[in-house]
């Protein structure tokens, strides 16, 4: 009998911890603890995905699934000051029946998944055979930016749609009566915070750019790099108490950065069609510079978008800010 594989023990421990954390987050009484446990959950999931040879996915989960979602949760909790319970919770009988059917679904699903052999090759040979025409050396980036670039274009559109929806929601709020959308209490102020920001913001910009560039060769890419850049955006917004910079140029610049990714992506796609290849059919010789161009602009847009989603309100035009100065009471 062979001794148990130590890595399998690690896997078992990790899987159990992930499940416990998921349950702990959802059943935790305190909302703040829930958010923190959820972030921890995301980080351990990222670790499990590293174990499963999916470093790109792990980076995305750590940066976006745990990081950005966690920041969004904490930001929302700060605003609403705790959760609101529905006036009419699901009756116990209904909850029990739902629980039974979900458990049945999961048991059947788990058994079916175990009984189904994984497809022998998947799309590994299909990707491998075309890597030399893709323009990049990293397969995941080749899939995202070339083989299935249309998916990725629509993915950037989804994020843009989210900003539009959030701004539509923001417009429904009567700001004269409602609490301000800012985060005055968590402002990153004081000499230590200032020194920290001066050190960290350039470092984040550098790391973000590095992640975008390295995506052509190894794990990384526009979304992970964009999330790091978004961290820089959120930090500098927090230094202002969670506001946009109050200049007249903020809104046009922001709108421009939000759409940059989609515009460049679509522009390159249409250019390729006019050049004779078909939409998003890059000429192999120019594929690499085109992909890097798209990735750089998508990363900037993702950074702007995630920052906008975090702040959750539109920049106020300078004129309106001057009008409302008497009524704001943040310190």
């Amino acid at each position: 009998m062979s001794p148990p594989d130590p890595y399998l023990l690690l896997d078992l421990g990790l899987a159990a911890t992930i499940l416990v954390l998921a349950l702990a987050a959802l059943r935790q009484r305190d909302s703040f603890t829930m958010a923190v446990v959820f972030i921890l959950f995301g980080l351990l999931v990222a670790l499990a995905w590293v174990r499963l040879d999916a470093p790109d996915v792990a980076l995305a989960e750590a940066a976006i699934g745990a990081g950005v979602t966690g920041a969004l949760l904490l930001r929302t909790l700060r605003h609403v000051g705790g959760e609101r319970r529905d006036p009419a919770p699901v009756p116990r009988v209904v909850a029990g029946m739902l629980g039974l059917s979900v458990a049945g679904f999961a048991t059947l699903g788990g058994l079916a998944l175990m009984a189904t052999p994984r497809h022998g090759t998947g799309l590994i040979p299909a990707v491998a055979a075309r890597m030399d025409q893709s323009g990049v050396e990293h397969p995941v980036t080749a899939v995202l930016l070339n083989f299935r670039a249309y998916d990725t274009l629509l993915e950037v559109v989804v994020v843009l749609a989210a900003v539009m929806a959030v701004w539509a929601i923001d417009r429904t709020i009567d700001r004269a009566a409602a609490p301000l959308p800012y985060l005055p209490g968590v402002a990153l102020r004081g000499p230590i915070a200032g020194a920290y920001l001066r050190l960290v913001l350039p470092a984040l910009a550098l790391i973000g750019a590095y992640l975008v560039w390295i995506g052509a060769y190894s794990p990384g890419g526009a979304f992970q790099g964009g999330a790091v850049l978004a961290a820089a955006g959120v930090l500098s917004a927090l230094a202002r108490g969670g506001r946009w910079p109050r200049t007249a140029a903020t809104m046009p610049l922001l709108r421009g950065s939000l759409v940059l990714g989609v515009v460049v992506f679509t522009g390159v796609g249409i250019w390729a069609a006019v050049a004779g290849g078909g939409v998003l059919h890059y000429p192999p010789a120019q594929a690499k510079p085109l992909i890097l161009l798209i990735e750089a602009s998508v990363a900037l847009s993702i950074a702007a978008t995630l920052t906008a989603l975090f702040l959750g309100h539109m920049p106020q035009p300078a004129a309106r800010i001057a009008l409302r100065k008497g009524t704001t009471n943040d310190t």
Binding site: F147, G278, H281
Partner: peptide, 13 residues
């Protein structure tokens, strides 16, 4: 029908 980017299925869309 159009294979986007010139990539045929099952890889392309």
């Amino acid at each position: 029908s159009t294979a986007i980017g010139g990539w045929e299925p099952p890889l392309g869309i």
